[in-house]
Amino acid sequence: MSRESDVEAQQSHGSSACSQPHGSVTQSQGSSSQSQGISSSSTSTMPNSSQSSHSSSGTLSSLETVSTQELYSIPEDQEPEDQEPEEPTPAPWARLWALQDGFANLECVNDNYWFGRDKSCEYCFDEPLLKRTDKYRTYSKKHFRIFREVGPKNSYIAYIEDHSGNGTFVNTELVGKGKRRPLNNNSEIALSLSRNKVFVFFDLTVDDQSVYPKALRDEYIMSKTLGSGACGEVKLAFERKTCKKVAIKIISKRKFAIGSAREADPALNVETEIEILKKLNHPCIIKIKNFFDAEDYYIVLELMEGGELFDKVVGNKRLKEATCKLYFYQMLLAVQYLHENGIIHRDLKPENVLLSSQEEDCLIKITDFGHSKILGETSLMRTLCGTPTYLAPEVLVSVGTAGYNRAVDCWSLGVILFICLSGYPPFSEHRTQVSLKDQITSGKYNFIPEVWAEVSEKALDLVKKLLVVDPKARFTTEEALRHPWLQDEDMKRKFQDLLSEENESTALPQVL
């Protein structure tokens, strides 16, 4: 008996699950189920560990084997000379395990699969056993689809999209007709009724959600790893209520002995410091949205989908001078704002400069500016000194954290500008005749005249004003913003236009 009217009423009120309206889709043409990776026989039982391990490696599972009696060998002398080797079968990115008779397991190899009674669906509900069930008529011709799209860092995100009359449910929550939600590992998919569980979705590319604290899981769906560094790992996640993407940084307390840091400095109150950081608001710094204190720290951040500045300059790639100017102007505005709010970044580098898009002209935002507030000064500097390429001379020669101030950030900005303009770092371990530390503390950077011949004198002058060993003589952010190279009204107008595109209400910060 159909429950279409009941569920449609529920759909009209929406769902609290991570779902959002989605535009129309072009329906895929039908194809045989076997060619799409559906096993030839149905099963109602969950797999054992041996079955799972075989399939996850990209080899055929026991459900897909063919009797050897149906095959015969071709003698080598009868092999056609022009026969080309077969292409290897792509490894599946996800697996659906059937929970009921009449449904088959599915190895997801393609990027898009339609499910329903219509014969054009890649996964067609046409098993005779299924057709005899009382629920068969409640399934729509095109009930739902599972697909994946390219996300940040060229990774993939799996989604389920509801197109049914009676509802598609993920972990008992209604997706909603015309809406989608991301699928995470071990999600249970039910059709027409929330208790009519048909599939379990296994994402073969992500970790299980159960490793994360419950308070975090209640608000966010964790997904793929976006990156990792000395101070922690960053994962893509989704807000459950809105389906908006965020980035979540995970900082290990054990790695940084944060408990010991608190004992050594009783004034170090991470929760208080995070609340201060959350109040920071500038178009060129990453917004801190939320914070969870569990076995590790979880910092929920605004997501930038254009990648890191590092990706644009790695491998001796240089940027156009006009692009360097647009990016560097924004970096200076961001660091100036942090300094005005009493925050020294201490870890400025291309990896911590994020881009809003893949376009050459785009907004940038500074991230990882609050680590000293979370990890403690000593722990952070011990970590950073392991990779000193961007560290100021006074940091390398000081004991502990004494003896330096916000000028350290201006040195790091000078190193970043040098790399963007030239395509190579000013200080490098590859210069074996002088140690990296000695290069930095003496201010002897690697200047290649033929490379810098293409760079304007004004740009080079600003680099020199920032890479000054004496912090008292080094340019401040205010002085850098007043430098002739940055007195470019076309560049500032472009920045204002980019801000307006992102948010019509965002105004250009005042600069002296």
Rank of each mutant, 00 (worst) to 15 (best):
E4I: 10
V7A: 11
A9E: 15
Q11V: 08
S12A: 11
S12W: 11
S16F: 06
S16P: 11
T26C: 14
Q27L: 10
Q29I: 11
G30I: 15
S31W: 08
S31C: 07
Q36K: 06
S40M: 03
S41L: 10
S44V: 09
P47Y: 11
N48T: 12
S49Q: 09
S49T: 13
S49H: 11
S50A: 13
S53M: 09
S57L: 10
V66M: 14
T68I: 11
Q69F: 00
Q69T: 02
E70Y: 14
D77W: 07
Q78A: 10
Q78D: 13
E79R: 13
E81C: 10
E81Q: 15
E84D: 13
P85L: 06
E87K: 09
E87A: 10
A91E: 08
P92S: 15
L96M: 08
A98Q: 11
A98F: 03
A98K: 10
L99C: 15
Q100D: 04
A104I: 13
N105Q: 08
L106Y: 11
V109N: 06
V109K: 12
C121R: 02
C121I: 14
D126A: 14
L130E: 03
K135L: 15
S140A: 03
S140M: 00
K141L: 05
K141I: 06
K141P: 02
K141C: 06
H143L: 02
E149R: 00
V150L: 02
G151P: 03
P152R: 09
K153R: 02
N154C: 01
N154K: 15
S155G: 11
Y156I: 05
Y156L: 06
I157L: 13
A158S: 04
I160R: 02
E161K: 14
H163Y: 05
S164E: 00
N166Y: 02
N166D: 02
F169T: 02
V170R: 02
N171C: 11
T172H: 04
E173V: 10
G176W: 03
G176R: 12
G176K: 09
K177N: 14
P182A: 07
L183C: 11
N186V: 06
S187A: 04
S187E: 02
N196A: 15
V198F: 09
F199K: 03
L204Y: 06
D207W: 00
A215W: 10
R217E: 06
M222H: 04
T225N: 08
T225I: 12
G232F: 01
L236P: 05
A237N: 00
E239D: 06
C243N: 01
A247S: 03
K253H: 02
R254M: 00
F256I: 11
A257G: 07
G259M: 09
G259P: 05
R262S: 06
R262E: 02
L268N: 06
L268C: 07
